[in-house]
Simulated assay, not measured.
Amino acid sequence: MSRPLTPLALTVLRMLCDSPMHPYEMQQRIRDHAYDHAVKITHGALYHSVERLAASGLIEPLETSREGRRPERTTYAVTAAGRDAAQIRLAELLRNPAAEFPLFGTGLAFLNLLSEDEVARLLRSRAVKLEATLAGHQAAHEALLKQGLDRYKLIDQEWLIARARGELEFVRGLVDDLDSGGLTWKDDDVQIRCHPRPRPPQHDDEGTS
């Protein structure tokens, strides 16, 4: 493939390194191993990725079968070129930090467009959602451990837990600093110019001017 392997393509190759399977089996494997916690996966994208890998010679069809009224299912196997490509791409991902631009970072860069009180309120809401996310990751991790999966198969889960825990701690710290006045931009020119002005009081009688 001329372009670097996408995370989803690498996921397909990794699964086929275990054994040949058809896309429906891949979907089941993704759910069973919680790969969708580490990689964005949709039904259509999975089939498209399989087609691209096959067209590039990184996987190859072994057989096509049909059971009853179910659609035909093609079983694929990874090729030697596919194994090489997966190992090269994995090495790149582990070795080289990628320039990523998470949306939360964008929000943090422009805090002063809102008041300190509003930012603190929004971050408290974020903290509640992060607590739920963290609990979900931990529950999924514990469930997979109970299934007997080796730790090396769950390292991505550990990273998700650590990242959620770290972000939660960071957000709580920001809220504390905002509440205590240790973080402020009240005198910032941009905040003064751009913060929405208070709305005029509304009359109960819509007909009153």
Rank of each mutant, 00 (worst) to 15 (best):
G173F: 10
L145P: 00
F110Y: 13
Q87V: 12
R126G: 02
V175N: 12
T133D: 12
L178D: 13
H141D: 11
L94T: 06
G166Q: 08
L93I: 05
G148S: 12
I155D: 15
R83N: 04
A139V: 01
D117L: 04
L93Y: 01
V128K: 05
L90V: 09
L149Q: 10
V171Q: 05
A77F: 04
R151V: 11
A132C: 03
L144G: 11
T79H: 06
L123A: 09
A98W: 05
E118M: 13
G82F: 01
P97A: 02
L93W: 06
E169N: 12
V175S: 11
L168C: 02
V119A: 09
G166V: 01
I155T: 15
Q87C: 07
L144I: 10
A139N: 05
R124W: 00
D84A: 13
L178H: 12
F104A: 10
P102H: 07
D150Y: 07
G166F: 00
E158F: 07
L160E: 08
Q87H: 12
A139M: 06
L111T: 12
R151K: 11
T184Y: 00
F104E: 03
G181E: 08
S125M: 03
A140P: 01
G181P: 08
A162H: 13
Q138D: 03
L123R: 12
L122E: 08
V175F: 06
A135T: 06
A164Y: 04
R83F: 03
G166C: 03
S180F: 07
A77S: 14
L94H: 08
L114V: 09
A91V: 04
G148Q: 06
W159F: 12
G148K: 08
A140W: 02
L113Q: 13
R165C: 01
A127G: 01
F104S: 05
R89V: 01
A98P: 00
W159E: 14
P102M: 04
Y152I: 09
R89W: 00
A98Q: 14
D188Q: 12
V171L: 05
W159P: 00
L160C: 12
D176A: 15
W185H: 12
V171A: 09
G107A: 02
F170E: 11
G82Y: 02
W185S: 06
A120E: 11
L183K: 13
